[in-house]
Amino acid sequence: MNWNIPNILTVIRLAAAPMVALMFLYFTRPYADWFALILFVSAAITDWFDGYLARSWRQETKLGAMLDPIADKAMVVIALMVIIGFSSWSGWLVLPATVILFREVFVSGLREFLGDTAGTLKVTKLAKWKTTLQMIAIAVLFSQGVFEHYFGMSIWGMDNEIVGQILSGEIPDVHGLGWKLTGAEWAGRIGLWLLWIAAALTLITGIDYFRKAMPHLKDDR
């Protein structure tokens, strides 16, 4: 096995995937949200760097080609699981997340079945955009958790009437409730919109891969 820098970055990204979930087991919120966001964004950045370095330095290997898509899928699947469990938008997240998870399992099964002919399912540019959009959406949704919990911490001990008066401008907003609530709402909305668009691209690429695999799925007569 060739342990060059691109492969090491890929392995680090793969190891970071379960760490995203562990942040919510060992830290309270919003610190868990912060750590998960930083960890996820850092890992997503390595996704671009390892591919760029492998091509630039001509260090593309079979190990890297095998681990890179696994690391991407692990990051996305585990992060979606965490977000659905903790996000206030979880009901609206279930459908796009289901589409994404189903497609990943389906395409992985196709590649495993095709074996040596799996090269017909090479990653397309649209699939790369799909992965990029998924990661941006997930990062934005993690940031929504940060805003949401700082807002919750700021209104601790206040009754609903006082909170309403602060948000309506009747009482000075010395704790920044307005921008924290606005940040939470818009991060949630934007992240959700991006995830639905990513789910649509995920469905399109999954259908494309199935179409390409069809000639190899026919029984010989």
Rank of each mutant, 00 (worst) to 15 (best):
A199P: 03
G178V: 08
I162F: 02
V174Q: 10
W193C: 12
A184S: 15
L192G: 14
L192K: 00
H175A: 15
L181C: 01
D159N: 15
I166Y: 05
E170P: 00
L195C: 08
W186G: 02
A199W: 03
G178Y: 04
W186A: 02
L195G: 07
G191K: 03
I162M: 13
M158D: 14
A187P: 00
L195S: 07
T182E: 12
L167V: 11
V174H: 02
A198K: 06
E185R: 14
D159C: 12
R189C: 01
E185C: 00
W179K: 10
V163N: 02
T182N: 11
L194G: 12
V174I: 14
W179A: 02
W179G: 00
K180V: 02
A187H: 07
E185L: 12
I166E: 02
D159K: 10
H175P: 00
R189P: 00
G183A: 10
G169V: 11
P172N: 11
L167I: 10
G176E: 08
L167F: 10
W186E: 03
G176L: 05
A198P: 09
A184Q: 05
G191H: 04
G178D: 10
G191M: 07
H175G: 00
W193Q: 03
L195E: 06
E161D: 15
W196H: 13
K180C: 01
A187T: 14
L167G: 08
R189V: 07
H175C: 01
P172H: 01
I171K: 04
L177H: 11
A184F: 12
A198Q: 07
I162R: 13
L167K: 11
A199H: 05
G178P: 00
G164W: 05
L194S: 05
A198E: 08
N160T: 10
E161Q: 14
K180T: 04
E170A: 15
V163F: 02
I166N: 02
G169W: 09
L177F: 09
W193G: 12
G183R: 04
H175D: 13
L167D: 07
L181Q: 14
R189M: 06
A184W: 09
R189H: 05
P172V: 10
I162Q: 13
K180S: 02
W193T: 12
T182K: 06
P172A: 13
V174T: 15
D173V: 04
G183D: 02
M158H: 08
L181S: 11
W193K: 00
D173W: 09
L181M: 14
R189L: 13
N160V: 04
Q165Y: 03
R189A: 07
T182V: 06
L177A: 11
K180G: 02
G183K: 05
G164K: 09
L195M: 13
E161K: 15
W179P: 00
A199D: 04
W196L: 10
I190Q: 01
P172G: 09
G164E: 13
L195T: 09
W193Y: 14
Q165L: 15
L167M: 13
W186N: 13
W179Y: 15
I190N: 07
W193H: 08
L194M: 15
D173I: 10
V174M: 06
L194R: 01
K180H: 09
L192T: 15
A187W: 01
E161V: 14
G191C: 08
K180P: 03
W196M: 12
